[in-house]
């Protein structure tokens, strides 16, 4: 440690994502040592990244919400509903772009509804979305009559891209990086993003500064819905079928990704890159447990352990 000058060590410690970076590197290192090439070979790593893409994309919206002191529990249900709506549209013979747009509009609409309900009824977002979680998931069940939908033409660009690699990397990973880049720029480099963080830092001072709280809340919830919609279409493209059980429990992993990535539940700031790294960490662990031939049930336990560990590492490193 003596080789590193004090100042740069302090710089390293001040990185918001330090916890997730340390956790990700150490878990990858351990897996490499214990499974050798099986973990480290490119096809496996790309597979892991693909698995992370759904959580990763949605964590972009979640980081924005958390940084303004809000949260959305209905993201998994929005993904399911979008998934089903797009599949139903295709089944009914609509053109692929129309079906995809209908899906995205459904996602954004669900988010908008969350925001409008919260603002107009003056209910905290966590409670609104606890309700809409059930509503959106219920609508997905109604639309699909509880069964998977796969009887539609897959002979178009969407399903082509969904199952293919671009430049050797799965399309969904590119999509995650693209959404992540947009989200990062929006949150860290635009007045809108700074105002979201201002609201999360001190809502009363934000109000005294003339920031319209309701409008920002609705906008952020809508973005969250749109992003969940993107993930929903992407899952459809990859799986080539829609199911009313896709996306179940995703909300917890998405929130976990954001928190593992160094975004505080209390608001005031957040890291989009951290959220994506958090999603990667969760995917790496699940992958590792499969490689190590643990039962899938232990995977769930291990995920929980890692969430707590990553957040604790972040806290300990910073406190020093």
């Amino acid at each position: 440690m003596r080789a590193i000058p004090r100042a740069s060590w302090r710089r390293v410690r001040s990185i918001d994502e330090i916890g997730v970076i340390v956790a990700l590197l150490s878990v990858c290192g351990l897996l490499w040592l214990s499974t050798g090439d099986r973990f480290a070979q490119p096809t496996n790593l790309l597979q892991v990244a693909r698995q992370a893409s759904s959580y990763g994309i949605m964590s972009v919206g979640m980081v924005m919400l958390l940084s303004m002191g809000e949260i959305d529990l209905s993201v998994g249900a929005i993904l399911t509903l979008v998934n089903i709506v797009a599949a139903v549209c295709l089944r009914e013979g609509m053109a692929m772009p129309v079906a995809a747009l209908a899906g995205l509009a459904t996602g954004a609409g669900c988010g908008l509804a969350n925001g409008l309900l919260g603002v107009s009824l003056r209910i905290p977002t966590i409670i609104v979305t606890l309700g809409t979680l059930s509503i959106y998931r219920g609508l997905a069940l109604v639309l699909s009559k509880g069964t998977p939908i796969a009887n539609f033409s897959k002979d178009n660009l969407l399903f082509d891209l969904g199952s293919r690699n671009l430049a050797g990397v799965p399309t969904s990973v590119w999509l995650m990086l693209a959404v992540g880049a947009c989200g990062h720029i929006l949150l860290a480099h635009t007045p809108f993003g700074w105002r979201l963080q201002a609201i999360g830092s001190n809502a009363q001072a934000a109000r005294f500064s003339g920031i319209p709280l309701a409008r920002h809340r609705i906008a952020a919830m809508t973005i969250m819905g749109l992003v969940a919609g993107i993930a929903g279409i992407m899952e459809l493209a990859f799986l080539q079928a829609a199911s009313p059980t896709t996306g179940q429990g995703y909300e917890l992993f998405v929130i976990a990704s954001a928190i593992i990535g160094g975004t505080a539940l209390t608001g005031g700031g957040g890291s989009v890159a951290g959220g994506i790294l958090g999603a990667l960490l969760i995917a790496v662990i699940r992958n590792g447990l499969v490689l190590l031939e643990f039962s899938a049930y232990w995977g769930t336990v291990a995920t929980g352990v890692v969430i707590i560990t990553a957040v604790a590492i972040g806290g300990v490193v910073k406190k020093q």
Binding site: A198, S201, N202, Q204, A205, G268
Partner: peptide, 9 residues
Amino acid sequence: REQGLMMDW
């Protein structure tokens, strides 16, 4: 503290 500044900024 409450109405003026973002104290953690």
